[in-house]
């Protein structure tokens, strides 16, 4: 098994960053389009799209930079916000379809994007945990988990 400790942009992480990057592009494109054309129709939904886009951009950059130093904290925060966001907005959009419409990446758990927005944050959280920096002295038990 390759050594992943402390690096988030290598190995499987490289695929993760690729998918994050594509989703960041998709979310940014979508939010820009609706902000320009129909913001007045549903400001909450469209502001949410923009928030989602920013979170994806942040997660992409933080994971790509290898999770070193404070970028790891940024990656944890962005991926966590994303996980909470997709579950919350996904659930609300099912309970009350009129709340957000189909207008955000996270509506209906990201159905419009093949549910990738639902799966991705949990893979991201697992990957951040998997690549966490460890020191043998601080975490003597961690060796067995490798």
């Amino acid at each position: 098994m390759e050594q992943h400790s402390g690096r988030t942009g290598r190995g499987l992480g490289r695929v993760l960053v690729t998918v994050y990057g594509i989703l960041a592009f998709a979310a940014t494109g979508r939010s820009t389009f609706v902000l320009v054309t129909k913001f007045s129709e549903a400001p909450v939904a469209y502001s949410l799209s923009t928030l989602a886009a920013l979170v994806y951009i942040l997660a992409t950059v933080a994971l790509a930079l290898g999770g070193r130093g404070s970028w790891r904290a940024v990656a944890w925060a962005a991926v966590s916000v994303e996980a909470v966001g997709v579950v919350t907005v996904g659930t609300l959009s099912l309970l009350d379809p009129a709340a957000f419409g189909e207008s955000t990446v996270w509506s209906r758990y990201g159905q419009g994007y093949g549910f990738v927005p639902l799966v991705l944050p949990f893979v991201g959280l697992w990957w951040l945990w998997r690549t966490r920096p460890r020191s043998a002295d601080a975490f003597p038990d961690a060796k067995e988990a490798v």
Binding site: E2, R10, G11, L12, R14, V15, V17, T18, G21
Partner: peptide, 14 residues
């Protein structure tokens, strides 16, 4: 560019 910098099978997935 992103794939080519990774010299493992994961670059092929990218």
């Amino acid at each position: 560019a992103w794939a080519f910098a990774e010299r493992t099978r994961w670059s092929s997935v990218v």
